[in-house]
Amino acid sequence: MARPFKQQRNPRNTSPAKPVAVDPDAVPQRLHKLLALAGFGSRREMENLVASGRITINGKTAEVGASVVPSDVVRLDSRPLHLPFEPELPQVLLYHKPEGEIVSQDDPEKRASVFDKLPRIRNGKWIAIGRLDMNTSGLLIFTTSGELANRFMHPRYEVEREYAVRIFGELTDGEMAQLTYGIELDDGPANFDSIRAQGGEGANHWYEVILREGRNREVRRLFEAFQKPVSRLIRVRFGPVNLPPRLKRGQMLHLGVKEVTGLMEWAELAVPKGPPRQLSAREKEKLGSVFTPKAKKSRFDAEAGLESRGPRRVTKTREEGMRQDIEKQQSGRRARSSQAAEPAEMQRPARQPKQATKPARKPANRRIRQATDISASSKIRRSKKS
């Protein structure tokens, strides 16, 4: 069935647009709070976004601390925003992060990121609750609620983080006691709330540690202070959320309405009283079931001179072939540039292009006349003359 044409607006119709119904009883709400509820970031990030001047209210640049009502038109870079004046239940996604992926959306080295596999959502974005370095695996939580993410990550709430650590060597009782008491690191004192030995084989031993901070590489640095390098680090719990045993490395899990409601109550946030958002058939299928995400289509390296092909799929073999072609071209350019840098007497004379000559015309295949071709009449005439 053919797709109908989009109805064009009549340019002669100069009638003004219908005014939006203004509710006099509407309670104004803070703009940065609504932006955080919509999943665009934390409240502090939204305050910085408003201060940058990219958001307008009814055509005027918004100021920090501005309030809006449902009848106001809010735009971000001229794109209209749908703010949740009646908050909906946020989405929460669990991911068993493997080693080799970074938790960042902007990486100049173009390494594999956890955000490359996240499912797309409308009117918002995924916010990573906490970070894990590239060599750390385990539980990683994503949500569309900036307030819920702030409740997990803000230092004043001191949410517990539990890790399974494998080190090379074994700690003594005195060292374990000192790790719980506290030691001095480069960025201040640090300690574990608890540490318990979990056994091990050979030179490797496992430990279960719990702490309430999320400083950069804090667990690794605490063990390295006693010359015990960490060879494996897995986060198994973040606050009330445990890493499900059925969630294998590289897999994701959407939490259901009941689990998300429990997290909102744990975070002491208001649970929406309205009806839940209608889910599509695909969202209902994934809800509560473990699935393996698909990575986004590969993009070429901009430094190599390759551009993205957009919606066209590019296989790994074809990408490697194009990279080899680019390297050959670059090596040829370097060779020509080095040749140009040599003295004039050392350079070889450039080859003169051959002039296009007109190809010689092939002789026609002519048949040689033989004596047998002479007719009998001509022989008779010659005999009479003689």
Rank of each mutant, 00 (worst) to 15 (best):
146 G>Q: 02
148 L>W: 01
148 L>V: 03
149 A>K: 10
149 A>L: 11
149 A>R: 08
149 A>S: 12
150 N>Q: 15
151 R>M: 09
151 R>E: 13
151 R>A: 15
152 F>D: 05
153 M>D: 08
154 H>T: 10
154 H>N: 13
155 P>K: 01
156 R>C: 03
156 R>I: 05
157 Y>P: 03
157 Y>S: 02
159 V>Y: 00
160 E>T: 10
160 E>D: 15
161 R>Y: 06
161 R>L: 10
162 E>A: 03
162 E>R: 05
163 Y>S: 07
163 Y>T: 00
164 A>S: 07
165 V>I: 09
165 V>K: 09
167 I>N: 12
168 F>K: 09
168 F>L: 15
169 G>K: 06
170 E>V: 11
170 E>D: 09
170 E>F: 10
171 L>G: 06
171 L>I: 06
172 T>C: 07
173 D>S: 14
174 G>L: 15
174 G>V: 15
176 M>S: 15
176 M>W: 05
176 M>Y: 02
176 M>G: 06
177 A>K: 14
177 A>F: 08
177 A>R: 14
179 L>Y: 04
180 T>A: 01
181 Y>C: 03
181 Y>D: 14
181 Y>F: 10
182 G>L: 10
182 G>S: 04
183 I>W: 10
183 I>E: 06
184 E>W: 10
184 E>M: 15
184 E>D: 13
184 E>I: 11
185 L>W: 05
186 D>N: 06
186 D>W: 04
186 D>C: 02
188 G>S: 13
188 G>L: 11
189 P>G: 10
189 P>T: 11
189 P>E: 14
190 A>Y: 06
190 A>V: 13
194 S>P: 02
194 S>L: 08
195 I>D: 00
195 I>E: 00
195 I>C: 00
